[in-house]
Amino acid sequence: MKSLFVIFLILSTSLIWKNSGDKIFSITWPEKTYDYSVNPRSDSKIQLGRALFYDPILSKDNSISCSSCHLQATGFTHVDHDLSHGIDGRIGTRNSMALMNLAWSTSFMWDGGVPALDRQTIAPITDHNEMDEDLKKVLKKLNKLPRYRKAFLEAFGAEEATTQNLLFAISQFELELISNNSKYDKYLRGEAQFNEQEQNGLQLFRNNCASCHTEPLFTSHKFENNGLPLDPTLMDYGRKKITNLAEDAQKFKVPTLRNIKHTYPYMHDGRFSKLREVLDHYTDNIERSSTLSPQLKKAIKLSSNEKADIIAFLFTLTDDDFLFNPKFGYPREFFSKE
């Protein structure tokens, strides 16, 4: 009986996973985790949040905005340097993160230190290495501007910006940043074909990577140690800083791989600038520390061609409708009024 079941399992999985160009409908999107009941979706909130996201008014010297580190065309991360830069050119300790499909996330930041999207924005506004501005001062600045008074009134029924409403508005914009129209998505829906290399890449990916970079979001939302040696100049132990537990040392949140072609450099400290280096890491340079994730204990073996195939597959995760969606861009109209 048991063996029959196993055979059935193998058969059924191979049926699903074997992708001979057939349509594959087996991957469904999970429910969103964001609780809209406390912050119901509305267009006026989304537009206000979008304006705030692009407005350097949120920083002390009015020099940088969220979008300085989270650029749309690069999957809402920034690509020119490994560690993010804040005002006065101060260097942060981590690589910026790509922002997409946040409505499904269960925690935020590389170490998951922020438990709710609505609370995330507080960090860049008040972190000394980022925007270095006090929330109260931000509210004061916003409340002086008629265009924001009007926008807050429209969105929340009150002209005066409060911490709560400021955070709710930015969340609303971020929640709109959904990437689900890549070639991969079209392939799953039967609207596009994969070539042989991409198909082979998908297969290899599912065998070696998908336990952490789980479809369709390409993250399990868990914390894992993927074998990166500790950078002695940063001494960043990741999740351990939050939980104070030795077993969490060097664990980081599994990042999504959607739009990965454009979101370099890679890893929490931006140590790799090319996907090839990432793959070389997984095959050759895994550090065997005590917290290494079990999936990586057995060495991953990939030939040079197979690596190229995986990369070809990863390129199918590029979603131009997302990267160039004018709804997510700089809100020229909002800022040109007055």
Partner: peptide, 8 residues
């Protein structure tokens, strides 16, 4: 209190 979205 730390994880809910109430910040008033």
């Amino acid at each position: 209190y730390h994880t809910a979205s109430v910040m008033e």
